[in-house]
Amino acid sequence: MAQFTVARARAELARIRPALDRLVVVRADAAELAAALSPGGPPTALGGMAELKAAEALLDELITEIRESGASLKGLAPLLLDFPAELGGEDVLLCWLEGDAELSWYHRVDLGFAGRRPLP
């Protein structure tokens, strides 16, 4: 697994940010289309099964692009990314959560999200 510096992880996050923003929109569209296609589901102007399949294919492409960045995609709703790094000689994961303005959190590898702390 590649190690990131804080600066490199922030640069990579900025580079993939358009894909993350697009994923949020397509994720919502796919959820709305799936709900509309369920029995008794509410109508939607987004389309039907073909549009849902297209949204799912686009989601797969966006997820692949994000994973190819070296980030670990830990959650889709909300989006949660971890970038493996080292801080103070300790292996950590730099952590970005959908809604965070920038990459400014980390947690120890063994603690996960519950151990999330602000970057020094």
Rank of each mutant, 00 (worst) to 15 (best):
G40Y: 11
L94D: 02
D82W: 00
G41A: 00
V24D: 05
L97A: 13
L58S: 13
A11F: 03
A50F: 00
E32V: 12
G115F: 05
L73R: 14
P120C: 14
I66G: 14
A101I: 06
G99Y: 11
G48H: 14
A85C: 02
A101V: 01
T64M: 01
W96F: 09
L81G: 04
A28E: 10
P118Y: 06
A55K: 03
D82R: 09
G41M: 08
R22Q: 10
L103H: 03
A2G: 11
A57E: 04
P18N: 08
L79C: 05
Y106F: 08
P18S: 09
G75V: 00
L58Q: 13
D110S: 00
G89I: 01
L20Q: 02
A34V: 07
L97H: 15
C95P: 08
A50G: 06
D100C: 13
S38E: 14
G70H: 11
R15V: 09
L73W: 11
A85T: 01
I63K: 14
L80N: 03
D91P: 15
R8W: 04
R67K: 15
G88T: 07
V24I: 12
E56M: 11
V26Y: 00
R15M: 12
A57M: 05
W96D: 15
K74G: 15
V25G: 09
P120R: 12
P78K: 00
L97E: 02
S72I: 06
A34I: 06
G40W: 14
R116E: 04
I66T: 04
K74C: 10
M1D: 10
